[in-house]
Lab assay of single mutants.
Amino acid sequence: MTFKAIINGKTLKGETTTEAVDAATAEKVFKQYFNDNGLDGEWTYDDATKTFTVTE
C-alpha cells in the first residue's frame, strides 16, 4: 500500500510517499525520515486517505 506524509515544518514543507504493508510500518519509516531531517511536531493520521500529517 502507498502511504503519504504531508510535512508542515518550519524549515521543510512538502509531501513524500512510502510503500508499506501497514500504517504502523509506514509511520516508522516517516518518523525516521523526519528525525533524520530534524523535524519534530504534532502527528495526525487519516486512515481513509492513508495520509500522515506532521505540523511543526
Rank of each mutant, 00 (worst) to 15 (best):
A20K: 02
K50F: 08
A26E: 00
Q32I: 08
T2Q: 11
G38N: 10
T25F: 05
T25Y: 06
T51F: 01
T16Q: 11
G9W: 12
A5M: 15
T53A: 05
Q32G: 05
A48K: 09
M1Q: 12
T2M: 13
L39K: 04
I6F: 05
G14L: 15
A26R: 02
V29C: 13
K31I: 07
N8V: 15
K31N: 03
T51K: 01
F3S: 04
F34V: 13
Y33S: 02
E15G: 04
T2S: 09
A24W: 10
N35R: 14
K31T: 04
G9P: 02
D46T: 03
F30E: 00
T16G: 04
E15F: 14
K31S: 04
E27S: 03
V21H: 12
E15I: 13
K50N: 08
V54H: 03
A26V: 00
W43I: 06
V21N: 09
V29Y: 15
A26T: 00
G14E: 08
F34R: 01
E56L: 15
N35L: 14
L12I: 11
G38F: 13
D47N: 07
G41V: 13
D22E: 02
F30L: 08
W43V: 07
G9M: 15
E27W: 13
T16N: 04
M1K: 12
E27T: 03
K50L: 09
T55P: 03
F3E: 06
D40E: 13
T2K: 13
G9E: 02
K10Y: 09
T16S: 07
E27H: 09
F52Y: 04
F52Q: 00
E15S: 09
E27G: 06
A5T: 04
E15A: 08
Y33H: 06
T53L: 07
Y33I: 10
E56V: 14
K4I: 13
V29S: 05
F52E: 01
T17S: 11
E19C: 15
A24M: 08
T17K: 06
L39D: 03
F3R: 05
G9H: 09
K10L: 14
D47Y: 06
M1A: 09
E19G: 03
A48I: 10
T18H: 04
E42A: 08
V21T: 11
E19F: 15
K31Y: 04
W43T: 02
A48S: 10
F52C: 01
F52L: 01
A23P: 06
V21W: 10
T44G: 04
T44A: 08
M1T: 13
F52V: 02
T2F: 11
E19L: 12
T17R: 07
T18Q: 04
A48E: 12
A23D: 03
F52I: 01
I7R: 01
Q32R: 11
L39H: 04
E56A: 09
N8D: 08
K28P: 02
T11K: 11
G41N: 05
T53I: 11
G38T: 04
D36S: 10
F30C: 01
A26Q: 00
A23N: 02
G41C: 09
E19T: 13
K31P: 00
D47R: 05
E15P: 05
K13Q: 10
I6C: 09
T25L: 05
T18C: 14
A20V: 03
M1Y: 14
F34H: 00
V54R: 02
T51L: 03
T16D: 02
N8Q: 12
L12W: 14
G41R: 05
L12T: 07
N37H: 15
T11I: 11
K13E: 06
Y45C: 00
N8K: 12
D36R: 09
A20I: 03
T16F: 15
T25D: 06
Y45V: 00
K4L: 08
G9K: 07
D47E: 12
A24E: 12
T51Y: 02
T16R: 13
K13F: 12
F52D: 00
G9D: 03
A48L: 10
A48W: 05
G9R: 05
A26L: 02
N35H: 14
K50A: 06
E56C: 13
L12A: 06
I7D: 02
A23F: 10
K13D: 06
I6V: 11
I7C: 12
T53D: 02
G41L: 14
E56R: 05
A26N: 00
T49K: 06
T55A: 06
F3N: 05
L39V: 12
T16Y: 15
E42Y: 11
G14W: 15
Q32D: 08
E56Q: 11
A24I: 11
T53E: 03
D36Q: 12
E56H: 06
Y33D: 00
I6E: 04
A23H: 07
E15T: 11
F30H: 00
A24F: 08
A20Y: 02
T51H: 01
